[in-house]
């Protein structure tokens, strides 16, 4: 299943947040979205997942979601959004409870996703007992459990310290290599973007428009830290973004 954004525009009151966004999200690819703070990245993600209605344009789903997908458009939130009163496995169970699957199947799915994210030993722990990185892995397992067609990730790693982020980024890449998933991945971090994105969409400052789309052909499993090609792309992205960022910063200062 592919997604197509057609002339998406969005405004809050009389503040335009997004303007004329056209974008294809092909199945099995990770599309990164970067842009200065406040340019509407999170808003765009909410529009794609149907949590908000765009003021203009539409998000079109091309083709059917894969059979057995319980929740085609699934989010991974920056702040994890785990229920503190449920254990790790019950947090995953939550999103399966409304679907007509029996207990053994549910348990099999939970076991599968928790082992993919190496959380089996912690399945009876409560969120407060977990580190930030583990919490986000629980949130990722929960998203995987509903067999999403597209994973919508809003800065999934930015609440984590840089070492944990590095490890979890490797985990995500490994997950993708084992079983490619489609994803829209919003991030502030250009290094993250060049490591995990098949294409990287650079948005301008508010109102967010597409400045440039950078495609990186290097396969994910070959994108080691400090790869020359990646460094070049990262510098290129930074050059585009720097001017936008400076201008956005000035705008915020002057109110």
């Amino acid at each position: 299943m592919d997604l197509q954004l057609e002339q998406i525009g969005h405004r809050y009151g009389d503040m335009a947040v997004l303007d004329n966004i056209n974008l294809d999200i092909p199945a099995g690819k990770i599309v990164c979205i970067v842009g200065p703070s406040g340019c509407g990245k999170s808003t765009l993600l909410r529009l794609i997942g149907g949590l908000e209605k765009p003021s203009a344009g539409s998000v079109v789903q091309v083709g059917e979601p894969p059979a057995g997908s319980f929740n085609p458009l699934t989010y991974v939130f920056q702040d994890f959004a785990l229920l503190p009163w449920r254990t790790v496995e019950d947090n995953v169970r939550l999103v399966l409870e409304d679907h007509p699957i029996n207990k053994t199947e549910t348990n099999a799915i939970i076991h599968d996703v928790l082992s993919r994210t190496k959380l089996i030993e912690f399945r009876h722990a409560f969120p407060r007992q977990l580190s930030g990185g583990m919490k986000q892995r629980v949130a990722i397992s929960r998203a995987l459990a509903v067999k999403p067609a597209v994973m919508l990730m809003d800065e999934p790693l930015s609440a984590l310290d840089s070492q944990t982020r590095e490890l979890l980024l490797d985990d995500l890449i490994r997950l993708w290599c084992r079983e490619p998933f489609t994803s829209v991945y919003v991030t502030h971090n250009l290094n993250e973007a060049v490591r995990i994105g098949h294409s990287i969409v650079v948005l301008s400052r508010r109102p967010g428009r597409i400045r440039e789309v950078v495609n990186i052909d290097l396969p994910l499993e070959q994108r080691a830290r400090g790869h020359i090609e990646l460094d070049r792309q990262q510098t290129h992205l930074w050059n585009i973004m720097r001017d936008e960022a400076i201008a956005a910063d000035q705008e915020l200062l002057s109110g």
Binding site: G49, L51, F70, N71, L73, T74, Y75, F77, D79, A81, L83, W85, L94, V95, E97, D98, R142, V146
Partner: peptide, 23 residues
């Protein structure tokens, strides 16, 4: 954000109330 999470997983209204709001 927990309620948004519930909606984003297409939980039913009843599930959101009994499993997220009430606890």
């Amino acid at each position: 954000t927990l309620i948004r999470m519930g909606q984003s997983f297409s939980l039913s209204w009843f599930s959101i109330v009994t499993k997220i709001v009430l606890p």
